[in-house]
Design a protein around this nucleic acid. Structure first.
Lengths: 215, 215
DNA sequence: GTCTATAGCAGGATAGAC
DNA sequence: GTCTATCCTGCTATAGAC
């Protein structure tokens, strides 16, 4: 019995392997045969445990992707709790660190963003679930955190565009790691991540129409 | 004979339909049957004109995607030529308009960004071609245009991060149209695109460490 | 250049033994 | 829960008529 089969149920191995393969190749490019082989179990296991391939995908998103997103959100809250909560830069830095450095391994982070990006390009039923239970609450929380710092002269739409812009930077530097690494000429090591977080904080802080100097 | 078959060669119809379907669904999720049916031609046409499915994809990228990217770049240059070239905001505004408003129809733009994003998540051999012939030159041009405005105290890496950040905003607001529209509550109509361009210019202009006030 | 017909294979799913 | 064996559908690609 292969080493990675120890102490894990077939069901859990299937979810783990499915996440990796779906993230890297996309739903249609992965066969059930490929998943079950990599998970060291029988072809029929997917149908036994989840019913069919589509349901495996949904369960994977529910049980793995969303709990991961939750971990990032928790990390954001914890980062913020350890800082001055009344400072706008604290909020942005906590956000950037939760995503760029955060609680995930580099591999997990890669899969996480690949899956999310695939859903953004072509939403499936999993996207509605994620949008309602993860993205919307997260966006709402972030809005409440940042709104107080924005100048009273900005309207609703401008406020939203500013918040989306910060998210855009964080997301982009995560999901475009490969091309960014090609341009800068080296990988995302820890020192670079620190400099990247600093850049994002500085760039978005200056970009926002703030009420007054509350850095 | 269907109306859209008039005055177009089978080859051109195949490329056009292939682009749409590959963009929306991804390479593996589209069958040659689906393409040839939509292009109102025979199943064997793909193999006759391009050899196989993969070669059709490559030709599509070469002949349609890259010429489209060229049109955006040309639009950027034209926008800039009509403005004050010595102003940093002119450069950013020309860039944002070329992408957000630009020479493409909304449909074309959607396919364009879906295809690019798919290549970003999982690069194929088409990506190397695009990176070398389109993205790298574009990034270089943009770098040369913007570098003069950046403060002398910023190093190479900081300059690159700033330029990538501007691109990130432009790209993100394009490829994430669906979720952005959901959040703001309406579609990307022309007035909104104008406000969006203004936001991007303002946000990135303030975010950059400029030499002096050259707005 | 366009068509039909078909080879050859891989896919998802299930029945039923253990 | 896990396995083997198998069904059937749909895929790419090609041969060869027109």
């Amino acid at each position: 019995m292969p080493p990675n089969k120890k102490n894990t149920s077939t069901r859990d191995r299937l979810l783990k392997v499915a996440e990796m393969l779906f993230a890297q190749k996309g739903y249609d490019s992965v066969s059930v045969r490929e998943i079950t082989t990599a998970a060291h179990c029988n072809l029929a296991a997917v149908n036994y445990h989840f019913g069919n391939k589509r349901a495996l995908y949904r369960h994977m998103f529910r049980e793995r992707w969303m709990s991961r997103a939750q971990r990032i959100l928790t990390c954001f809250e914890e980062n913020l709790a350890g800082r001055d909560e009344t400072s706008c830069s604290s909020v942005i830095q906590s956000l950037a660190e939760a995503f760029i450095k955060g609680p995930l391994t580099d591999e997990e982070r890669l899969y996480h963003f690949q899956l999310m990006t695939r859903e953004l390009i072509k939403p499936t039923d999993a996207f509605d679930m994620v949008a309602a239970e993860t993205m919307r609450p997260f966006f709402k929380t972030l809005g409440q955190r940042l709104r107080p710092f924005l100048s009273d002269t900005v309207d609703e739409e401008q406020a939203i565009l500013n918040i989306i812009s910060i998210i855009a930077l964080v997301i982009y530097f995560n999901f475009a790691r490969v091309p960014v690494s090609r341009i800068i000429g080296y990988a995302y090591d820890e020192p670079f991540k620190d400099r990247l977080v600093r850049h994002i904080v500085q760039f978005s802080l200056s970009g926002m129409p703030l009420k007054e100097e509350t850095r």
